[in-house]
Structure formats: structure tokens, C-alpha cells
């Protein structure tokens, strides 16, 4: 399974999202690769992703995708990530 963590420039915030998404997936005992990327790369990196994690601000920038787009409000709240990933993947 492939999950993409998206931010505007592909460092910093998307890396935090990736780290905490991996923690959430470990708690859910789901195996997945989480890749951090930027808006410019999301179509290329995300074309085969099941899930794109991002902020509400960036949803429109993703464009067309077959992935489930999950909006995360608090990037540090692993409980929020667990709940939303469980809903999307469960």
C-alpha cells in the first residue's frame, strides 16, 4: 500500500505528517509506504497511491486523483491520523 504525505514544498510539514502517519499505521498494524512530496510532484508520486494525506488548504492543488484524500487538521495528533486512516483503509 502506498500513502502520500503532501505539503507545499515537500519538506518540513510533509515530513512531520509522514513520521506521524507511520506511527499511526504501526498502531493500526497496517503495512504501507509513506512518501513525502510537494504540490509539484503529487501527480507523479501519487498516481498509484491509495491515500493522500494533506491540509485542507492543498486539496484543490492535488487535481484529479483516484486516491482517497484525507485532510488532517492537527499534524501532531496521532489519534486523529489513526481514526482517519482506519476509516479510509478499514
Amino acid at each position: 500500500m502506498k500513502i502520500v504525505a503532501l505539503c507545499g514544498v515537500g519538506i518540513g510539514t510533509s515530513a512531520i505528517l509522514k513520521v506521524n502517519a507511520e506511527r499511526a499505521l504501526a498502531r493500526l498494524e497496517i503495512e504501507a509506504d509513506v512518501t513525502a512530496t510537494d504540490v509539484a510532484g503529487v501527480q507523479k508520486v501519487g498516481f498509484d497511491a491509495q491515500v493522500i494525506l494533506t491540509s485542507s488548504e492543498l486539496v484543490e492543488a492535488i487535481g484529479k486523483t483516484n486516491a482517497d484524500v484525507i485532510v488532517i487538521e492537527n499534524y501532531f495528533d496521532v489519534d486523529e491520523l489513526v481514526a482517519k486512516l482506519e476509516t479510509a483503509l478499514g
Partner: peptide
């Protein structure tokens, strides 16, 4: 300016950053 306020990643906290 380009991408909006997504850098506000948690209540009350902004992580300001740019590319290397």
C-alpha cells in the same frame, strides 16, 4: 502566499519553512 496557511499544522502553531 503561494500555497496558503497549511503551515499552521496544529492548533496555535505555524511551522514556517521553504525549500533548501
Amino acid at each position: 502566499d503561494e500555497f496558503g496557511a497549511y503551515v499552521v499544522i496544529a492548533p496555535g502553531l505555524a511551522l514556517a519553512h521553504a525549500r533548501p
